[in-house]
Design a protein around this nucleic acid. Structure first.
Length: 259
DNA sequence: CCCGTGACACTCC
DNA sequence: TGGAGTGCCACGG
């Protein structure tokens, strides 16, 4: 009870009660809204900590109640409609740089957070293999677990799990279906036909004969290598053995060198 | 180079 | 609880 702007209880406690306990404001409610995205309409749930859950309308058969049910099943709380989108959400859903977009990833394991944060560092228009995520997340052998985490990505599009592909050049699976993964990557100007053509020849890395740097084929540095100076490699190890150094931008892994 | 197979780290029922 | 099951990967033929 506040009297003339003074809280007698807080006063009695000598101000110890000043900041509300962290858990309290969390329990207020989670808002949701529908918004346009590169996958058509999406449903988005968010708290005051940031965006928590995103699903395409298509994936829940256009049914907002099904979205709310999926949310409740996973987070244990109901949703209620929200009027305004959090800062940065709408541009991010359209694939533009998301200035100030906050994500609410509370409740996820350290491993899940590390996987999502590594995934978030993949620039638009580029791809990285699952093994790269595992290494960047500090668990180089947890490759399959990376797949398990991304299959349940709470915030697809915002954490661009569609940019994570198989190391053999194939796209791999996607929570909304491989066709949508391909569609998203093409919209970002990833040259999938070129990647597939290289993969068919067993080429998964590109080196520049003039700079001596070796990259993933979708790295922006790799795309600037003139064809005359371009050398394809099947493994990063063979490129290193040939005197190339891994690109500091796309950071292809350095595998064990043969003895 | 294409296929099958084993191993893998992690999560969930 | 532990044993499935997993958006993969490397290797062997």
């Amino acid at each position: 009870m506040m009297l003339n702007g003074v809280d007698p209880i807080a006063t009695a406690l000598g101000g110890l009660a000043a900041p509300a306990p962290a858990g309290l404001t969390d329990k207020v409610f989670t808002g949701w809204l529908a918004a346009p995205s590169r996958l058509g309409e999406v449903f988005v749930a968010f708290t005051d900590h940031g965006v928590q859950f995103v699903r395409s309308a298509e994936s829940v058969h256009g049914d907002a109640d099904a979205f709310a049910e999926a949310y409740r099943g996973r987070f244990g709380r109901p949703l209620r409609p929200a009027g305004r989108a959090p800062a940065g959400l709408l541009p991010a859903l359209r694939g533009r740089p998301a200035a100030g977009l906050q994500l609410d990833l509370r409740g996820l394991s350290d491993f899940e957070c590390d996987v999502l944060s590594a995934t978030r560092r993949i620039p638009a228009g580029q791809t990285r293999p699952y093994g790269w995520i595992a290494r960047e997340a500090g668990r180089p052998h947890a490759v399959r677990a990376v797949g398990s985490v991304l299959a349940r990505n709470p915030v697809p599009l915002l954490v661009p799990c569609h940019r994570v592909v198989r190391s053999d050049g194939r796209l791999g699976d996607y929570m909304f279906g491989p066709a949508h993964k391909e569609e998203l990557l093409r919209a970002e100007d990833v040259n999938l036909d070129e990647v597939a053509a290289f993969a068919q020849q067993g080429v998964h890395y590109l080196g520049s004969g003039s700079t001596g740097v070796v990259c993933f084929p979708t790295c922006h540095n790799a795309r600037r290598i003139t064809p005359a100076h371009r050398h394809g490699f099947r493994t990063i190890g063979s490129a290193v053995a040939a005197g190339y150094r891994p690109c500091r931008h796309c950071r292809p892994g350095v595998e064990a060198m043969p003895a």
